[in-house]
Design a protein around this nucleic acid. Structure first.
Lengths: 335, 335
DNA sequence: TTGTATGCGTTATCAT
DNA sequence: ATGATAACGCATACAA
């Protein structure tokens, strides 16, 4: 690996001059510039980003922390962030938190230690206080899908409560009143907010929340199948099911088919997130759109504007969920 | 951000001593160790990974390059790599190549510039020569799903040709002989190898390859629906369809349903990759298992063994595809 | 066991 | 316009 020193020697100039042509921020005569460029070429010189970062205290890279690297939801989010940043010549350093407090902290600190110019995090296990404390450091932290009051201008979130409300309301408007619910892990704010919305829709239509029609899953396919298994085993009847995300909905749909529950004639299902494959399930899944990809792009735009000082960027911090009607809900006659 | 210098001052020792307790590789008296630890505590000291990396020429992090951050395939791969590495206390720096030569090079050089101890890459657009050249640098490069002769001991790959062969053979064994094929982008080695396998299975059973039953898609859902649209439009008849990956299979399945082609009675479909949701489609998708997650883990193990010198690790560089029989293939009578 | 001094590859602040 | 030289925060060979 050639260093800037070797380049300077070959070009017959000083270190400083080489550095100048690299960052072309200062005047360098065309002649010497040419010599330096040539030297770089023949040596196959590549700047050492680490050294640049240490000296300039700027890494031109932003850290991303997500819970998992797999899963359509996180994929869309990362993809949105990266697309926008990459277009601006910035790089992304991704790591994971696995929804565990220690790992999230570890990941966050790793990112800070790597001198990221900013961090975009989707954290679920660490406390608000911890985040606020960390935000006092030199690395700005932006939060995805989470609202922390003290950091509200750095938070991008979906109105999950409203989404949960819409999902259940949609079922009610199709004539359903016996509605089961498979929730996500309640320590996740997304999950608990969606559930709150569900309860609001219920009470607004004078339907009592029924504990026996309720199950807490893991936000994965298995959570959906286990949930439906549990609900069916109870023997209580219900005509509709809300799943707090699409993965669980797909698991429930599969379980239903395997146990001869006709979809949607015997059971209507609505999911949440509108991940890509929701549209490829059978029946195609009616769900609540969660524009994660756009939210990711927006997070990226925020750091582009606030950290890298790009102009003419419109910011929007709250995203609204919308119901995507497909074929997994059947209308039933109201008596 | 407190530095090692401030810690040393507060603890009343030298820089070197602080450094020693951090890396606890040299003997330090319990007493002074305690003092240093205490000083770190009260200052909330966090080592600057950048500086460590510059000084030690080791970053304890490995770079990953994938084409896309979204998509079940890449998700499984990244996840496998990260799981294994994280368990060993190493971090991962992920970036993308978007299947474009310039971006892949850019990503690779970014990773090298960040001083990664090794790189695990899934590159599709850069040439073998470029990779070989890059491998002569100080950063070892491991290749996922790609075989480069000169670097064969650093390549982890699936026998895609065999997989393609198995897929078509499976259809043939179910009595099909009119078999259409929706391929992936042919500049991708995976895609072209799978196609080769398909042709081999065909010729082995004396079935001529028919250009009219062939379409090249984009490895995404849209490729599958466009492909089936194209094939159906031709008016030629076929009873079975091989899709070079599951996303395209799901797209084709959706298109089939929308155009009243009964699955699997009128059309049998087999996919490739066995991504998670293949098991949640309807009918559940018969496909060729591509153990990307395990392959990711294996790549991680290779760097753990060869770069970080961990012992007792078994290495396996070639993975075999297997057919996962589900419900998307119908047996038909052979005349 | 502990401290001193030097180097890692850049950027940046001075001069010239 | 260009060249010395001091940071940047840490690791490490060498001394003590």
């Amino acid at each position: 690996m050639a260093t800037i020193y070797e380049v300077s020697k070959l070009a017959g100039v000083s270190l400083a001059t080489v550095s100048r042509v690299m960052n072309n921020n200062a005047r360098v005569s065309d002649n010497t510039k040419k010599k330096v460029l040539a030297a770089m070429q023949t040596l196959g010189y590549r700047p050492n980003a680490i050294a640049q970062s240490l000296a300039s205290n700027c890494s031109n890279s932003v850290g991303i922390l997500v819970s998992e690297l797999s899963g359509a939801f996180y994929g869309q989010m990362m993809s949105g962030i990266e697309t926008e940043l990459r277009a601006a010549g910035k790089h992304v350093i991704i790591t994971t938190g696995h929804s565990e407090e220690e790992k999230e902290k570890d990941g966050l600190e790793f990112l800070i230690g790597r001198n990221c110019d900013a961090i975009i995090a989707h954290v679920e296990a660490v406390s608000d206080e911890y985040i606020v404390e960390l935000s006092k450091g030199k690395t700005p932290i932006y939060l995805m899908s989470r609202h922390v009051e003290a950091l509200s201008e750095k938070c991008i979130s979906l109105d999950n409560e409203h989404g949960g409300y819409l999902a259940t309301k949609s079922l009610i408007e199709h004539g359903h009143s016996k509605i089961a619910y498979i929730a996500g892990p309640q320590f996740k704010a997304d999950a608990s907010n969606r559930l709150q919305g569900h309860k609001r829709a219920l009470s607004e239509h004078n339907i009592a929340f029924d504990e026996t029609l309720f199950f807490i899953g893991d936000f994965k396919e298995t959570g959906g199948s286990e949930g439906l298994h549990h609900l069916l085993k109870q023997g209580y009847d219900f005509t509709a099911l809300v799943c707090a995300n699409d993965e669980m909905a797909s698991g429930a749909m599969k379980y239903a088919r395997e146990h001869n529950v006709k979809l949607p004639s015997q059971l209507s299902i609505i999911g949440f997130d509108n991940v890509i494959f929701a549209n490829y399930l059978y029946p195609t899944l009616t769900t609540v759109d969660n524009p994660v990809n756009e939210m990711g792009r927006m997070a990226a735009k925020m750091v582009l504007k606030e950290i890298y000082h790009q102009k003419n960027i419109e910011i929007n911090r709250i995203f609204e969920p919308t119901v995507i009607l497909r074929n997994s809900i059947k209308s039933i006659k109201t008596t």
